[in-house]
Nucleic acid binder design. Structure first.
Lengths: 248, 248
DNA sequence: AGGCGACATTGATTTGGGTCAAAGACCCGG
DNA sequence: CCGGGTCTTTGACCCAAATCAATGTCGCCT
């Protein structure tokens, strides 16, 4: 059996598939096990989309806008399933934030073999939509938010995804550097640092070493993030000004 | 039979489904026909994702970042299939750019009923991935590109999606205003206008009235867009500096 | 434990795009 | 074909974040 390592875990936990069953073996044949260390790139097929299951660790998915400009489009943590696009107008790179174990599949072939199983397709579809919604929110942040709002929103998003505090005040341990945060938020490292300082001086967060962040005042942090609040922010008039018209 | 209008067209053309068959009827029951005029919002369920088939016309999908800040996350044209997210940290609104006809479905229920049909799930998955890839490219543009690069890239993207020229020099008819373009690119209307002027003065494009744009020099336009070129732009050293390490 | 290299912070200055203001062009309806 | 409102263009000025430049600090490795 060619598959090994986290592939079986992936198939069973995500899709409820017995790796020994026919479909399990067929999909397992497509699997490639990868282990990367901090800063190392996961080589993916430049000609086709790659489907990735991150068994453990954390990764960043970044795109090359040009020689010196990178944009991180997503961070992933243990258990995440996502895709790495083939090269198009931008080149995408998947890179470990720390030591990570993952299983990769050629997406098209995986879909071909999995198509007959509605569970798998449903699971993939929902994950894809989650990634799309996150990406859209990112687009809103990048297009419309100030540096302060972006950093506050980032901390809230990371808190939701990797809060490790138990009972005590919310605390997160960021696996990415200030530079990574900047590349994710479309800001320079100095700007990210200044915003951290502002939040610390305002008593909203506290920092411990390079990666530890205590979220001392979540409501105020959410306020700083400037998210849409359905109770306080009515839509701008001209977007809803025209009266509905019945279908003839 | 409760379904009518473009729903049948949608089911047959997209998924190869006979609207009269069992699955066709079940999905058709979920359909809502909508007809909007320019500027009118398509009401979608704030509590759940809405699946939309745009039969004809053009729409913009925008998010409210706050009272006065909007970000358009996608434009859609006749034949497109996409989803409108439920309200989360941002409120999304689907609005007609011109008179449009569409069919909407509650996504969760649609998926529940369609799950048994691998063709449908496969088609939905691929559309979702297309939207995700476009959104990621948008994130790269919003995060890293200059105003000039964004506008050039926008024109190229619109050319790919709605080029109507036949044989003659590439020409597009933009269904959206300068303001919409600005909200899509994270720029103000004045900045968009200035970039159009620059491109016109450089002889790269020509404009005809409010919506007509001739792309006189596509290679130079692509150059202005500053896209990653696999032949000329090598990856930044530190992203690939660490040597691969074999799995123990 | 100590030293070194990468990462982070802070300050001074510059600048791309935003903001404010006004004039001009398109296009629809009468 | 003319009038008026909306959309677009252009110009002058301003500001948030980028850039340039030190200085400071963490944490890894010996």
């Amino acid at each position: 059996m060619p598959n090994f390592g986290s592939c079986n875990v992936f198939l069973r936990a995500t899709f409820g598939i017995d790796p020994g069953a026919e479909i399990g073996r067929q999909l397992g044949e497509l699997a490639t096990q990868v282990h990367v260390i901090r800063g190392q790139e996961v080589k993916t097929d430049p000609a086709d989309t790659t489907l990735v299951f991150l068994a453990s660790g954390a990764t960043k998915l970044g795109a090359l806008a040009s020689r010196e400009r990178h944009q991180i489009v997503a961070f992933h943590f243990g258990g995440d399933i996502f895709t790495v696009p083939a090269v198009s107008v931008h080149r995408y790179m998947l890179i470990g934030l720390c030591e990570s174990t993952l299983t990769t599949f050629p997406a098209r072939e995986f879909y071909d073999r999995a198509a007959s199983n509605p569970w798998i397709m449903r699971a993939l579809l929902e994950r894809s939509q989650t990634a799309l919604f996150r990406c859209r929110d990112k687009a809103v942040n990048l297009g419309q938010k100030s540096a302060g709002e972006r950093v506050a929103g980032f901390l809230l998003a990371m808190w939701e995804r990797l809060d490790a505090s138990e009972g005590s005040s919310p605390m997160i341990d960021l696996p990415m550097s200030r530079g990574d945060i900047g590349e994710s938020l479309g800001l320079k490292i100095e700007t990210v640092s200044r915003q951290f300082t502002k939040l610390r001086e305002a008593g909203i967060i506290d920092t411990h070493g390079r990666s530890g962040v205590s979220l001392l005042d979540l409501p105020r942090l959410a306020e700083q993030a400037g998210y849409y609040d359905r109770n306080t922010v009515p839509p701008r008039p001209e977007w809803v000004e025209r009266k509905p018209e019945l279908v003839p």
